[in-house]
Design a protein around this nucleic acid. Structure first.
Lengths: 123, 123
DNA sequence: ACAGTAACTTTCAAATTGAAAGTTTGATTC
DNA sequence: GAATCAAACTTTCAATTTGAAAGTTACTGT
């Protein structure tokens, strides 16, 4: 994915980084409390593994997630959101609001998500 | 562009519709007050005409914009945002906030945009 | 030895992007 | 009245991106 900036506009710059169909879905799942590749892969929308790997690399390079080893042997890694990543939550909430008000039959966004927490038991 | 829903989640549904690099830039320009194809095409980020035409059709089909004739001869059309389209402004403001807080050297979003207006003289 | 698990990587056909040039409908200028 | 201009698209096509499926690596557990 190209991530360089088309203009100094903060909106277009945001879209240069996050303007695709998968990245913010991954962020959503991480805000909910998912950390592992297999967990993220198994989400509701079925991100293809090739895209997930690609995006995790990008998230890491951009400082929105950190790759952390959680097992020595076998070597295994998980991802933690940084503050920069956690700061994306208001954008996702604004998107939710629009969808709930303008599309039919969408799930209602849980209060714990709107209030800044992860899923109960995951957080 | 595919626009069908991957799941009933309001966030993923939002991204099914608006998750690409151009659509929300077009919405931004329309919120600022641009209505004509040539105006939108000449924006800061240079949307390719083929993509712009494609997206305007999509915006129209999804009820976010309306195609309105403004000249009989020669026949000429412009686009007006509907309430559904205007309701996207808070999402763009949330994106702006994130970029201004987390990226370097971005433009500052004008107050009239944050306050729900178009560019002075355009609105 | 053999199956299982987690985190990826590879492959490749199909879909999307975007730069450039072309089309349509008429108004205006030479 | 022929040529130029203008606005709103449409077409073309090479290059990039997507995503389904299968494969790889580094182990653990039976």
């Amino acid at each position: 994915m190209k991530t360089d900036h088309r203009s100094p506009c903060p909106i277009s710059s945001f879209l240069d980084l996050w303007g695709d169909r998968w990245t913010l879905i991954i962020i959503r799942d991480m805000l909910v409390g998912k950390r592992r590749f297999s967990d993220l892969e198994a989400g509701n929308e079925r991100v293809p593994a090739s895209i997930l790997a690609n995006r995790m690399k990008q998230l890491t390079e951009l400082g929105v997630a950190k790759r952390v080893q959680y097992s020595e042997r076998p070597p295994r890694y998980e991802y933690h959101l940084t503050d920069k990543g956690k700061a994306l939550r208001p954008v996702l909430i604004a998107m939710s609001n629009w969808s709930e008000e303008n599309l039919d039959d969408r799930w209602h966004t849980p209060d714990w998500f709107r209030e800044g927490r992860g899923a109960p038991g995951r957080n």
